[in-house]
């Protein structure tokens, strides 16, 4: 710690939160949101995952270098670094797996429009497209081919009912307000509106909560 650090500690104008902490907050929030929301959320477009994956790679390289050093002092630091590394990797892995689970369940839905496709990362899009093609080819070769040609599609919307299953956007979720914000919820008997204070936790339908979450005024918990 040098004099700059000490000055920064007592300087009230220095509110800046370091990039690493902001990334960890963003990653944790994205993970919790993805674990709680009924539908697939947009892939973060600000390069969050590229940055975190890059950092994880660097940290792994550092661990590899440090392992040769058998000094007991660095040894403990190594344990701390590896523990933290595992925590990050768990977060990233669980986030990606939660997305995959949703993608598997409603693959055709997320591939159906450009707006929905834009939510997927490049890798997820490639995975979903190929997986869906394989699946459809398998169905075709095992039983669909004996159907009339008009009945071989998996995405018919004949008779006003689409074959594609969609996630239930009206399911209830818990959200926490990140700032004081008005909130509206639709209910069976009445619709309600209320003022949420920062930190309040409310149950409402995802369709009503979505705009708040996307605007950053609330987060899923």
């Amino acid at each position: 710690m040098d004099i700059d650090d000490i000055l920064r500690d007592v300087d009230p104008t220095f509110h800046a939160i370091p990039q690493e902490k902001r990334d960890l907050q963003a990653l944790t929030r994205a993970w919790i949101a993805e674990r709680s929301a009924p539908e697939l959320l947009p892939w973060p477009s600000n390069g969050l995952f590229e940055r975190i994956n890059g950092n994880i790679k660097q940290q792994i390289e550092k661990v590899e270098e440090m392992t040769g050093d058998m000094d007991p002092k660095t040894n403990f630091a190594l344990i701390v670094i590896q523990t933290e590394l595992e925590r990050y990797r768990y977060l990233v892995r669980s986030y990606l797996r939660a997305r995959l689970a949703k993608l598997d369940r409603h693959a055709l839905h997320y591939l159906s429009t450009d707006a929905l496709r834009a939510r997927l990362s490049e890798m997820e899009l490639a995975y979903a497209t190929r997986h869906q093609a394989l699946l459809h080819n398998h169905y075709l070769s095992s039983f669909l081919s004996s159907f009339p040609a008009g009945l071989q599609n998996l995405n018919d919307a004949a008779g006003g009912i689409s074959m594609i299953e969609t996630p239930d956007l009206e399911s209830a979720v818990f959200i926490r307000a990140l700032k004081d914000t008005p909130v509206e919820g639709r209910g069976v008997d009445t619709d309600e509106a209320a003022e949420m204070q920062e930190g309040d936790i409310v149950i409402l339908r995802w369709a009503d909560a979505k705009s708040l979450v996307e605007a950053g005024s609330a987060e899923l918990v």
Partner: peptide, 9 residues
């Protein structure tokens, strides 16, 4: 739960 909101502050 006729209304649309329930607060658990």
């Amino acid at each position: 739960f006729g209304g649309g909101l329930m607060s658990l502050r």
